[in-house]
């Protein structure tokens, strides 16, 4: 397990409003990490900075020793909260697209997962339900052999069965060479799957620990601790 992500002094503002206030963090590979925090705490913003779709105002991010850019995009697989395909694309075209641009894309795996989910390759994105679209994107993202998977609220808008499926997919995909960061506010659903958790509040890291440590030291679940720490 080596150092995968290094973050130093990360600042990001939206207009005048500071959203990330000097984050410092080091994350190892081979871990499944939960990024937890209330809405508006900066979770999404942090993930977007790692993915390269937001430029920080200040600070340094290195992934596998490289600064965020083309080289990191080759090894980072990002699942945002939104549908990012053109609505007119067919599912099979999205597979072709990933195959064209990502060297680490495993086409057979994607096809296999999609057929198990009963999703027709000829359907257009715009004709799929929101839940199905999210599953398609998840399948594509997880069918890459990336070093870092960034999943922004992957289980938020889906039914419990789909949630189980998504968590199972994450576990099946696990590799010591890679890490997964899952940002979510549905903690109890993912707790068993996480190695470590990071609590973010108001753009700062409130807590960073392994799940085992939290349970051992506090005698309660991460979910329960979260409710205490972030009680309104």
């Amino acid at each position: 397990m080596s150092m995968l992500i290094g973050v130093k002094g990360l600042h990001k503002k939206y207009g005048k409003k500071p959203v990330l206030k000097g984050l410092n963090l080091e994350l190892k590979s081979g871990r499944i990490i939960g990024l937890l925090g209330p809405n508006g705490s900066g979770k999404s913003t942090f993930i977007k900075c790692l993915a390269g779709v937001l430029t920080p105002n200040e600070g340094e991010i290195t992934i596998a020793g490289k600064k965020v850019g083309i080289e990191t995009k080759e090894i980072v697989s990002y699942l945002p909260e939104r549908t990012y395909f053109s609505p007119n694309m067919k599912v099979k075209e999205t597979i072709e697209f990933f195959k064209d641009f990502y060297k680490d894309f495993r086409e057979e795996r994607a096809m296999d997962l999609l057929s198990k989910l009963d999703i027709s390759l000829d359907s257009k994105i715009k004709h799929l339900s929101k839940g199905t679209r999210e599953k398609v994107q998840l399948v594509l993202v997880m069918s890459r052999e990336a070093k870092l998977y960034l999943l922004d609220e992957p289980i938020g808008g889906v039914d419990p069965a789909a949630r189980d499926y998504i968590l199972k997919t994450i576990l099946t995909n696990y590799s010591e060479e890679a890490s997964v960061i899952i940002s979510t506010h549905l903690i109890s659903d993912v707790e068993n799957v996480l190695d470590d958790v990071i609590f973010i509040q108001n753009g700062e890291i409130a807590l960073s620990s392994s799940v085992d440590d939290i349970r051992e030291k506090n005698g309660k679940s991460v979910d329960a601790l979260f409710r205490e720490v972030f009680a309104c």
């Binding site: 696990y174 068993n192 799940v211």
Partner: peptide, 17 residues
């Protein structure tokens, strides 16, 4: 490890430990 992790729905590192 992987099989147990999947079956139990838990992190492989946890099973390994």
């Amino acid at each position: 490890v992987r099989e147990i992790a999947l079956e139990a729905g838990v992190n492989p590192n946890t099973v390994q430990k």
